[in-house]
Design a binder for these strands. Sequence first.
DNA 1: CTGAAAGCGCTTACAG
DNA 2: CTGAAAGCGCTTACAG
Lengths: 343, 343
Amino acid sequence: MTDAVEPPKARRPNTRLEEVARAAGVSKSTVSRVINGEPYVSSKAREAVHQAITRLGYSPNQAARTLAGSRANCIALVVSEQGSRVLADPFFAGVLRGVNAELAGKRVQLVLMMSKEGDEQDLVNYLCGGHVDGVLVISLHGQDPLPRTLADAGLPTVVGGRPLGAGGVPYVDADNFNGAMEAARYLVSLGRKRIGTIAGPRDMAVGMDRLSGWKRGLSQARMETDLVAYGDFTPESGAAAMADLLGRAPDLDAVFVAADIMALGALQTLHAHGKRVPHDVAVVGFDDLMIASTAVPPLTTVRQDVEQLGRTMTWRLMAELAGEENLPPFLLLPTAMVTRASA
Amino acid sequence: MTDAVEPPKARRPNTRLEEVARAAGVSKSTVSRVINGEPYVSSKAREAVHQAITRLGYSPNQAARTLAGSRANCIALVVSEQGSRVLADPFFAGVLRGVNAELAGKRVQLVLMMSKEGDEQDLVNYLCGGHVDGVLVISLHGQDPLPRTLADAGLPTVVGGRPLGAGGVPYVDADNFNGAMEAARYLVSLGRKRIGTIAGPRDMAVGMDRLSGWKRGLSQARMETDLVAYGDFTPESGAAAMADLLGRAPDLDAVFVAADIMALGALQTLHAHGKRVPHDVAVVGFDDLMIASTAVPPLTTVRQDVEQLGRTMTWRLMAELAGEENLPPFLLLPTAMVTRASA
DNA sequence: CTGAAAGCGCTTACAG
DNA sequence: CTGAAAGCGCTTACAG
């Protein structure tokens, strides 16, 4: 035997609060108070504790804090798996960046959970089990009762994107209605006469709100709002919807596509049909994804700031956890037209 | 005063293990054993406990489990913020889906942490503080010492994408070298004579490995490997690199672009220069993003399965946590050419 | 402003 | 196969 037997990994115990207390010459209570930023601590004691913490590289045991205290110091971001494929990756990643940015410096962890078809009960049990202080929910579909369930259980909850089936639960959303209306007005201002739209899925508010905005924009100009085709936020569905629209209205000269990712498919169809963009058909998208600027031609679109969405959701949730009152029931973030070559 | 004073939120205590024990007519120890799937429990007791758990909707308090036991039942996914912008969103979202898929059914939570410039020490303190059982690290840049630091601290760590500065730390990666070599060979087989490449950043293994693969593919055909331009995984950098290449070699008739997102920019430049794709210049990308198929023309590319990457990383980490031995030090996932119109 | 003590809800030897 | 008891590392009244 040349190999020594692996010694039983002596899991070196971490620095504990007690050691910090000893090093600082105070009691555990005082250290705890300093860590939690409580007011009644002498600056001398506070100073000593801070130094000891730094010197020892102390990091409080979260499990113990959670168990002893009443909060988990942890919030959950719940993503519906179904929705995550549809709403697509840039949305998800952007929101996440925003959430993290807002959480920076706060001692709050983010746990990520994907809700899968069929395990809703497990999810609700877990979330309501005191493991998290609050929940952020995104990419909801249809009348998903999840936010209502969580809110009813007394768990602070904020939804990203207006929830269709959860009246009363606070949410943050881009101002999809006005963004789409502005896009429609822009196309009208360009002198376009036959304007269609490729809308998002009927069971998501983001789809319906953008459709409503487009309708309003056209109605105000006394134009027809009959040219509607639906897609599901994939390039392929955008291509198919565009073909549908072209078949129904050969004289179509503009289209508002409710998502850049579908607009890419629409551009492909227009190209295949020999339609020049924007000469024959003007195209406006929505989202302003990174790839919008490299579409052929570069896509005119309505920008929404998804990172800001994540930040705002988190801010709203943390404010509620902090006990602030009279918080707004919902928040709408502004959108902005970005004019490029396609319209 | 018409409003009643808000009653102090009577935080309804959750079902506890003790109540389950009482309902099942056994001791707390036995309930704990059942929950943790330990072997020495009579099937009768096991059955009673399971029923009680279901009936009471019991969800164990993770904080208590963590504190009492030695594991956190939690792993971290660490994303370098800098890297996350570069590697782009689809990568991140795909990996995350894979991680979640692999974690499904296991009672292990995923906490997400973004490492920001300057807070590395906090991050290391936290991770090594016993709050997580293991760490998944992605989108590393340069010689980032993080994985080495974590591994040295005895924390099981798996890196996604070959780490440049962490020899010895287990990693999972797409087989970038062979994928790129295959792309180069494919262009050669098409009869192309002057083949360039737009490579990724020099400080990321993914950039270097794809570049090496391309070089090898051309060398084997005794072709020049001088036409290299560098980008940073943005469409804009791809556009600029393409212009550079065209300036250096007007006779260029093919280009391997190390990422689809850069290929979009390259296509735009080629278009602007009046080059027809693939007639004048054949283009092959890498990744097979959703948008590759709606590029104009649809992009021939090398597919990597990022979701599989996430699953494999997680599997590798969980296997180590389970105490399995003789695990592979690294794992390379196969790539596959996807032929479309651009080459 | 400070400290001693109880308790959060589990897991884990230990004894049987 | 099972149970009584100690202990994980904090926070929080309570008393001073």
